[in-house]
């Protein structure tokens, strides 16, 4: 038995986030996004709708994008997580972040952390996506400002940057 917990009991959860091992406490019903933000103080991951629709809370868990408001924190026990804080390395932005900056891929920026993580997942699988593939790849991420045109442009540009620097194989900062 990995874990059996009683009501009201606080559970200790250990997981790797952006290459670092964290331990924190949560109730079994605590959602992963609140664990990341309130317990681990990783507030880069945003809570948008809190109902699993908007994708602002998207993170990579064991290499795949998930909405962290649609998982319990206890489900992240022993998981390997990447949040938006894990993208930049040594004070240098990730190519996806650079591309969003250069192509005005954000306005208010609220959806951006999730948008970046979905873009990363898409480009790792498909380094040179078509516009249609990009739009499908980010269909789980809602943006109320941009109308998506510049986001699509940014993802396309990010793909070019990552292909150039050979990063499309999925190397991200650890």
């Amino acid at each position: 038995m990995v874990r059996s917990s009683l009501k009201d009991e606080i559970v200790q959860i250990t997981c790797r986030v952006n290459g670092k091992t964290y331990q924190g406490a949560a109730e079994p019903r605590t959602l992963l996004v609140y664990f990341l933000r309130d317990e681990l103080n990783l507030t880069g991951t945003h809570v948008g709708c809190d109902t699993g629709h908007c994708g602002a809370c998207t993170i990579l868990m064991d290499g795949k994008t998930v909405k962290s408001c649609m998982l319990l924190a206890v489900q992240a026990q022993d998981a390997d997580i990447t949040t938006v804080e894990g993208l930049a390395k040594d004070n240098k932005l990730h190519p996806i972040q650079e591309a969003f900056w250069e192509n005005h891929g954000l306005q208010c920026g609220y959806c951006t952390p999730g948008m970046l993580m979905s873009s990363l997942f898409l480009l790792q699988r498909n380094p040179d996506p078509t516009e249609e593939e990009i739009r499908r790849g980010i269909e789980g991420n809602l943006c109320r400002c941009t109308g998506y045109v510049n986001i699509v442009k940014s993802v396309k540009a990010a793909g070019e940057k990552m292909r150039e620097s050979g990063k499309a194989s999925g190397k991200i900062s650890k």
Partner: peptide, 17 residues
């Protein structure tokens, strides 16, 4: 939005589950 409280079990085998 937080679910109502529950007991959480994460068994390691189908039998246990």
């Amino acid at each position: 939005m937080t679910p109502k409280k529950f007991d959480y079990y994460a068994p390691t085998s189908l039998r246990e589950a």
